[in-house]
Design a protein around this nucleic acid. Structure first.
Lengths: 286, 286
DNA sequence: TGATCGATAGAATGTTTATTCCATTCGTGT
DNA sequence: ACACGAATGGAATAAACATTCTATCGATCA
């Protein structure tokens, strides 16, 4: 598990990105401060990722105008064991690549008119997920997210409140935070014990409250109680009119697309992961 | 480069397809008339083109359940010089789809370094979600899903088993199924009561077991116990090698993309919604 | 200007990899 | 049931490969 804010200057020895997006960001960030030949490799790598994915060290080196050993040094400067290790990440990018439009069309034709009901449903939910994620990415307010991270990172204990449809989100965050060593309490409201679970919340703590329509009244009650005890509140809702929006210190809005009346959870999940990892990163800096 | 003279049995001309579409057609056409092991390779190649593109002869052979030499013979039977020659065609397929890399690069340079860390994380998780969903949509086996729906729809009670990272999925399904009037029991393993929760499972019931690496041993135990009592098993895993894959009546594979070591849940969520709604639909028909 | 440390090129090395070869098995037709 | 040819598994082999090592070069600071 690697996270920890990757910083600018440090060689970041212990772990290098395993996914292409992070690696690309790392290369962009480090390219300027690298030695001449390594900068040359960085530039080539960003411009010709496919070459790196498929080529051999010798062939890539020749095309980039450097020695094979330079590729190894470049990889190691980024924290990888060697060129092969770096190459794996470039390959993963192609493995996970979203299929091209033509490919999808071909596949659609293959499934053809005898497409099953299950496939129709899957396609619908998949599309809803994509729309949700893309929509949130476009509309999200980075400043608000930063603020939320600030509050959560500063809390002694994070109380996670989410009932009904929001529960999968908070339960995921509880799991991930546990793995990352972030103290949290998952308020699940089982057996109506929600009030007891939050009875020790203090001004040093924070509550993350997630609630979508139709609102669970208990979430509102718990949020108000936590606020009365001085805790900071971060809320995630699908509307300004949510009863927990006005009492929150930071409020994040998410509108999920839906299919057949079932709303996606993809955008909320992505936000949950972002918050979790960002809090861990923020804490790691100190 | 390859202009081998004609070979003894003359299974093909001196030239083999250099583009993937043609090769695919050739394999489909010839598959039936090939020897047993070569048919096996043909089938594997059509199902896992990415593996062939990236793997080594040894790794592909192992996954396909044949000897490396068989891969070479297969390639030669199709008119190629050897496995590497055939592999080039599989790689060209990935090279060809170049969606919008330049576009993304420009965007990255534009946001540049002034993009917040939170935004970088969000973009990463959003991309992972999109890739996961699209990838699953492309690779999913509609017949298997249909079968899973059949089993679940026929069950008196559906037992939902998913611990750790899989719990958000099962807890969502429990919520949604509850709303739809589908009788289910969410086995959450709280207080180690997993065994008690499943002790009344019978042959009229079904279990949906979700497990990803690292596997929770309790999930395996519960699955085996349920099978021993005669329940039908539907399993969702990220690998054939999952201990719960072989004991299941239907096995669905999901490979989620990951960012910074955190795997997305978007594809699994979409599948969960699909199964839930499909089961409700199937029951509604009767 | 001279000394020192990092960067680089290119050859050497040891490992990985595809391929070939051969003995054995399997299937088929007499 | 026998013989023959094709098919297969597995070890042997040779080529390709990434990586390491060392001598040289270049830049920076005293």
């Amino acid at each position: 598990m690697s996270l920890m804010g990757g910083n600018g200057t440090a060689p970041s020895q212990d772990s290098a990105p395993r996914d292409f997006a992070a690696l690309r960001a790392l290369i962009v960030a480090r390219a300027q401060r690298l030695p001449r030949r390594l900068t040359q490799v960085a530039s080539y790598a960003l411009d010709n990722p496919d070459e790196i994915a498929f080529g051999t060290a010798a062939s890539v080196a020749q095309r980039a105008g450097v020695q094979p050993s330079t590729l190894v040094r470049f990889s190691q400067a980024l924290g990888y064991q060697g060129f092969s290790d770096l190459q794996d990440v470039f390959r993963s990018r192609l493995r996970e690549r979203v299929p091209s439009y033509d490919e999808r069309l071909a596949q659609l034709r293959e499934h053809g008119l005898n497409a099953s009901k299950a496939r129709a449903l899957l396609d619908g939910f998949a599309e809803a997920a994509s729309r949700s994620v893309a929509g949130f990415q476009a509309k999200a307010d980075p400043a608000a997210i930063e603020q939320a991270v600030e509050i959560l990172a500063g809390a002694k204990t994070i109380y996670l409140v989410g009932l009904r449809r929001s529960f999968p989100i908070t339960s995921y965050m509880a799991y991930a935070m546990g793995k990352l060593g972030i103290r949290n309490i998952l308020v699940d409201g089982i057996a109506g014990l929600g009030a007891e679970q939050t009875s020790f919340i203090s001004g040093a703590d924070a509550m993350l409250a997630i609630s979508f329509t139709p609102y669970a009244s208990e979430t509102v009650t718990l949020t108000n109680a936590a606020r009365a005890r001085g805790a900071r509140i971060v809320s995630i809702t699908d509307s300004v009119f949510s009863p927990i929006a006005p009492v929150a210190d930071v409020w994040l809005e998410i509108v999920e697309a839906n299919f057949e009346g079932f709303r996606s959870m993809a955008a909320t999940m992505a936000l949950a992961m972002t918050l979790t990892v960002a809090v861990a990163g923020r804490r790691g800096e100190k």
